[in-house]
Write a protein that binds this DNA or RNA. Structure first.
Lengths: 150, 150
DNA sequence: ACGCTATAGTTGAGTCCGCAAGCAATGGTA
DNA sequence: TACCATTGCTTGCGGACTCAACTATAGCGT
């Protein structure tokens, strides 16, 4: 059995992410994970999530989320909010500034993703790719990004 | 157009790499990149490569390679060698200990990759996946890992 | 022979993130 | 009620990596 698939997954991801993450950072000062966090918060009920849930979706550890949100809070894109029913949890809430930032970043991010993938695959192939990759563990947390473009 | 493919690529890679890289580190004390570097050196002519070429294949910067090799040198898996025709280049040469380590690590790494992918895809799907991912930029540096199992 | 630019490599500072350890609140169980 | 394991979150430390700045060599053109 050839292990090409895995090696390509590794390499393709590294290269693709580097390019996308790089311009996101350069143009908007956001990490891929910053972006994903904002996106998830924006889509969540009342724009807020528990840190644990966020960490699960972003595949980061709890401490990783703490630091990620530290940055987003410092930038004013996210706020903290207490939970009335469980005093251990500290909600992360997206602010208006956060939504603005997300919208601004999404536009160019989408354009790039579309360019990268649209150039190389047709609709059927994209579907295949999504299907195949979707079987790998962890992929169940993936959410289509087209929901918030409508 | 749905961007699922990209999101899944991101998530699937993160999860897959975390698991594979984790056990490689836990069982053999090697990073994925350590492993890839040793593999590439082992396969190279005379077991040596210029640092620049290595960095291009591993998709790391020159400084990243310097530090990676620092570690492998300290562990005794890699040596330095001068180039007679160009005094700027410092070859990285895999040592016998390095080859031993690689062989040892490859065994369990393969088993895991095989388990992860073999469980979820049949031969045709693996081929499709490799083909599709191979079109992404950076993937041309991917080398099938089956070459050194024969 | 001189200077200029390009290339190979290293180093310092800084970022992102995981691990291990810790604290506080929660929800059983006795 | 008292205890205790579990859960949510934060913090100190360290690893891997990048970027920018630097040194040294190479290979021009003049």
């Amino acid at each position: 059995m050839s292990l090409d698939a895995w090696v390509r997954l590794l390499q393709a991801h590294a290269a693709t992410t580097r390019s996308l993450s790089g311009s996101l950072l350069a143009q908007h000062g956001l990490t891929i994970n910053d972006y994903e966090a904002l996106m998830r918060l924006a889509r969540a009920d009342e724009g807020r999530m528990r840190r644990v849930d966020l960490s699960e979706q972003l595949l980061l550890t709890a401490s990783g989320i703490t630091r990620l949100l530290d940055g987003l809070e410092a930038a004013g894109y996210v706020d903290r909010a207490a939970c009335s029913s469980d005093r251990r949890v500290v909600y992360a809430v997206i602010t208006d500034a956060g939504r603005d930032k997300l919208e601004e970043a999404a536009e160019s991010h989408f354009a790039e993703v579309r360019a990268l993938f649209g150039e190389r695959f047709d609709a059927d192939e994209l579907k295949q790719l999504a299907d195949l990759l979707g079987r790998l563990p962890g992929a169940e947390n993936a959410v289509g990004e087209d929901c918030n473009v409508d």
